[in-house]
Every structure is written in C-alpha cells, then in structure tokens.
Design a binder for these strands. Structure first.
Length: 507
RNA sequence: UCCUUGGUAGCUCAGCUGGUUAGAGCACAUGACUGUUAAUCAUGGGGUCGCUGGUUCGAGUCCAGCCCAGGGAGCCA
C-alpha cells in the first residue's frame, strides 16, 4: 500500500489515495461522518458516508475520538470551502489506535495548561505553523553561511569558566570539577576562525537568569559567526544581508504558515529597505525623545498609544455590556447565546491584556524619560526605540564599560567600544549582539582584570593575539528571538518545541 | 530578588458589601438529525473553591503566611 501526503492532494484530483494520520476533529450526522485528518503535512476533511463504505466500517467510525490514529482510503475531490481546497470521499477507514479523551480542545486554554501539555499542543495548527517557519529559518541560516563560504563549527557546551562573567550560569559536575553550561561559543569561534577564516556556530546556550519576561529562555539556540579581516562596518553589512536573506526566504517559502499564525507580512516585506545604523549617542537621543524618527517622537507616540489603549478598553467594555444585555432578551436561541457568550469571554481576555499594557507603559515612559547616558539599554528602552521602525535597527559604538571585555575600543574615541546590537522592529528588541574584537593584548588583559575574570582561564584566548593577531569581528543571533519576531509571537516560549525557562522543566 | 495581577468542575470563566443545597459554556457519555466547518438540539455524570492557620454564629468571599502561574524590572540573545 502506497501512502500519500495531504500536502500533495492537489496532484491526485479524481484519483484514489490512502492517507495515514490522526483525526483532529470528528463531526457526525445521520449516515455521515466528517473527519478532519492531520498527517503532519497538512489537514484535510474526509467524508465517510454510510453509502460508500461497508456497514462494518461505518459502525467502527463511531469509535474515532479526537487524535485517534487512522488510515483512510478514498477519492480526492475539489471543494473550495476546505482548507487546502480538497477533500477525500472515503471508501475505507481503518483505526490504528483509539485515543483517550484529548485534553487540548479547540476552545481557548490558559498558558500554564498549554505549557503542561506542550507535547500535545505541538499538534495544533498554529504551533505546527510556527515550527515549520522555525525549520525554514534554520535551513536558511545554514544555506546563507555555507553559500558565503563559512565553515560550521561546534563549540563545547561544558566550560571551565564564566566566559563573559556577567550572567548567571548553570553549574554542573565534571568529574569532580565545577563546570558551567556554555552561555556563548564565541571565544572558541574566534579560535576556529583563525584556523578556517570564516566560521559559524549553531548550538544551544544556557543562562540561569530568573527572568520571567516574554524575551527570556534558560536554554536557547544561538548562531555565532566569526570572520577574520573584518571590521565592525563589514560586520554590519554581513548582518544586514544575512537577516534580509533569511526573512526573504521565509516570505517566499512559508506563505501559508505565516497566514496560519496571523502574521501581517507587509512589515516583513520592508526587509528590502536598508537597516538604519544609529550610533549609541543618536539612539539615546531618540529614546529620550530629543530626536524624532520619520516625524515620530518616542515619548509622544508612547503617550498616544496609552490613550489609544484606554479608548479601546472603553469600547470593549461597551460591547461587553451590549452583548450581555442581548443575551438576557427572552426567546433568544441557545446557539446565539453561546456565540455571544464566547464573544464576551474573548473580549474580557482582550481587556485583561490591555490592562496589562496600561500598567506597563507608564513604567516604560518613565524609564525612557530618565534614561541615563552611559547605561546599557533595558528591555523597555529597546521597545520604546524599535516601535518607531519597520526594519531592524543597528545600534553601534557603545560605552565600553557596559559591553563585554573582548570588544575593540573605538580608535577614534576611546570612550566607546565597537559593539553593535541589532534590534528587531515593532517593539521586539535585541536579536543580535556583536562587534569587532579587541586586538590589543595589553588592553585585553586590563579588561579581564577589570571584569574580575580569572586570568589563567583566558591564557589560551590571549594566545590568539600572541600568534598572528588580525582584525576580526562576529556576532551572535538568538534563534528564538528571530522566530518570535518573524511570526510576531507574544512570547518566545512558542518559538521552540520544548521551552526551558524559570519554573519550567517539564514536559 | 523586587513590583504587579491572578489561583473556583478535565478546560475557559461567573460567583456583589460574608448568609440556604457553588453556577454557565466547552469537553465527555447517551439519544436525534444526510454536507458539517469550534455543527446544532435534548438529557446526564462531574467540585478538598491552591495550601495552612486565623477572625466570625457562619468564609469561595475578610486577614496573615506559604506554594504555583501570568505580566514587568534588573540581566541578556
């Protein structure tokens, strides 16, 4: 028996096919069953009528609960109403395993419940689409770097020391010694670049931050290219063409998936425009509202948004009251009451989200107005800045005190380090951090001491400067943050199959 | 770690200034209906009101502590 895939049904119109998968939904009337079959490549309605299958098979169909695995044979017919445009008129149905009562229903669920059922949640359409887009992004990343002559390398995950010092690391036992789970493969990438020229790492990294925000994971995947004979400007050129190509690939190859997650692609299509390059000084002026962007002021637009949200909340409140009145009118059909009740529930949820926004914006406004020159950007500062743009923004030349020890001091102004952060638009914030590396051995040693890092652990790294130092640069891209922005997800946790974050180790 | 919001049926929620036997929708089960798109309609089972203690004649409701979760800050990709 040859099995067919739902995604290819269009090639078999009028022909008989056999599909194997799971029943994601079943409806029935007298003498007819409608089964939505899911096979991993798509969804398709299969019609089982009493006339076209044996009585025995028809009676068996009663057992098909949500997520029961089945094999269906039937004829492909065109039906514009169906997703995918085709349905299958079944001639035979075979049950493989009847599923127990399935916990994930079509109704809305809370985040905690969905996360507890992540292993099942992945089967639903929206999550399926996100994972397909993630896959396309991963593929495009490899494609881009391989095409550009980069060698992929794997950095170690056990490290003997805190690489950058600042973040909290996960400790583990390594044959009696304390080892840390890697928070970056960059230093190893630099070493490899001196052997290969251009390299990129693609692997997991670990941060033990007790952060509970929409941007943080404890375990996430990072791509870290490193290029010899590169300065910060060549680095920015590379980042720009890299992100442009990945986003373009998703746009051309994942149209259906982007539609499934409800992504408005007009913003993504702006990716062909040049990315603004702002110096730290300029970015700070914009955040503080001292400089406008395309006639937009950060402070004012945030204040306007607050007003808009408040107006919207009033509107929603009005609609809720109206619908609640409507439900009470006597003689209303049960179906209509249910419809209105569902609408009210949805509006109330929306209201809760907006309330959250009104609680957050004043804090962001406050932090933007009082931003202290010389500090690193916080999450809210990135939000305030990137809300004003529709393409990624590059901020470069940072005060050297707030950045990592290995960044090159700017030759024109020693206050600055040649780091660059790429911030995703629409309020998403940092997706890339990178820069040109320090080549001055003495300055590096000084920096390592300043950051109170154990010198002996960095001797091998200093060797890279001692034996034929060259200018070089690189960057690190957070895969999940890129997926989150491209899909416009409300939280990073949906961008990875099984998120690991503070308080979440299962499933 | 801090600020903030919440925890009531398998799920999503309602439950007013404390007061009889704690409710709805969905899901599930049974039945009706030959084209449904979260199908519809009828009937039914289903609860340690997060935990512990306190106030009270009486606590889902008030108070305290703890636990868990959402959002944010710090830190970061």
């Amino acid at each position: 028996m040859q099995a067919y895939l739902i995604k290819n049904l269009k090639d078999y119109e009028g022909q008989q096919v056999t599909l194997q998968g799971w029943a994601s939904n079943r409806r029935d009337s007298k003498g007819i069953y409608f089964i939505i079959l899911r096979d991993g490549t798509g969804w398709c309605q299969c019609v089982v009528s009493a006339e076209s299958v044996s009585e025995e098979v028809f009676n068996e169909c009663k057992k098909i609960t949500t997520e029961t695995s089945i094999i269906i044979t039937g004829t492909v017919t065109k039906d514009e109403k169906q997703m995918g445009g085709f349905e299958v008129q079944a001639t035979d149905v075979q049950i493989i395993a009847v599923a127990d009562e399935y916990p994930v229903s079509k109704k809305e669920h809370g985040v905690d419940f969905l996360m507890d059922n992540r292993h099942l949640w992945l089967r639903s359409q929206r999550q399926w689409a996100i994972m397909k887009i993630r896959n396309q992004i991963i593929f495009s990343i490899h494609q881009f770097f391989q095409k550009e002559g980069f060698i992929q390398m794997d950095a170690p995950l056990f490290t003997g020391n805190a690489c950058e010092g600042t973040s909290n690391l996960f400790e583990t036992d390594f044959y009696g010694d304390t080892a840390y789970l890697s928070q970056s493969g960059q230093l190893y990438g630099e070493a490899m670049a001196f052997a290969m020229g251009k390299i990129y790492t693609f692997g997991p990294t670990f941060r033990a931050e007790k952060s509970k925000t929409r941007r943080h994971l404890s375990e996430f995947w990072m791509i870290e290219p490193e290029m010899v004979f590169f300065d910060i400007f060549q680095n920015m050129d590379l980042i720009e063409s890299f992100l442009r190509e990945v986003v373009s690939n998703v746009l051309t190859n994942c149209k259906a998936e982007l539609a499934m997650v409800g992504r408005d692609t007009t913003v993504l299509e702006q990716i062909i425009k040049p990315f603004p390059r702002l110096s730290y000084d300029e970015a700070v002026r914009i955040i503080k509202g001292e400089q406008d962007v395309n006639g937009q002021n950060s402070i004012k637009s945030l204040e306007d948004e607050l007003k808009q949200v408040e107006a919207k909340m009033e509107e929603i409140n009005k609609e809720i009251v109206e619908r609640e009145e409507k439900i009470k009118t006597p003689g209303m059909k049960k179906g209509e009451i249910g419809f209105n009740q569902a609408k009210i529930d949805k509006l109330k949820q929306e209201l809760k989200d907006l309330e959250e926004v009104t609680r957050n914006i004043p804090g962001w406004l406050n932090s933007a107005r009082n931003f202290e020159y010389g500090n690193d950007f916080g999450g809210s500062d990135e939000t305030v800045l990137t809300r004003l743009f529709d393409v990624p923004v590059m901020v470069y030349n940072w005060p050297h005190e707030v950045k990592a020890f290995y960044l090159k001091r700017d030759p024109d102004n020693s206050k600055f380090a040649r780091g660059v952060d790429v911030l995703a638009p629409e309020g998403y914030g940092e997706i890339v951090g990178g820069g040109e590396r320090e080549t001055d051995t003495d300055l590096l040693i000084e920096k390592i001491k300043e950051h109170q890092l154990p010198m002996e652990a960095f001797e091998w790294y200093l060797d890279l400067r001692r034996y034929g130092s060259v200018p070089h640069a690189g960057f690190g891209l957070g895969l999940e943050r890129l997926v989150t922005w491209i899909c416009k997800l409300p939280h990073v946790r949906e961008s990875i199959p099984f998120p690991r974050m503070y308080g979440r180790l299962l499933p």
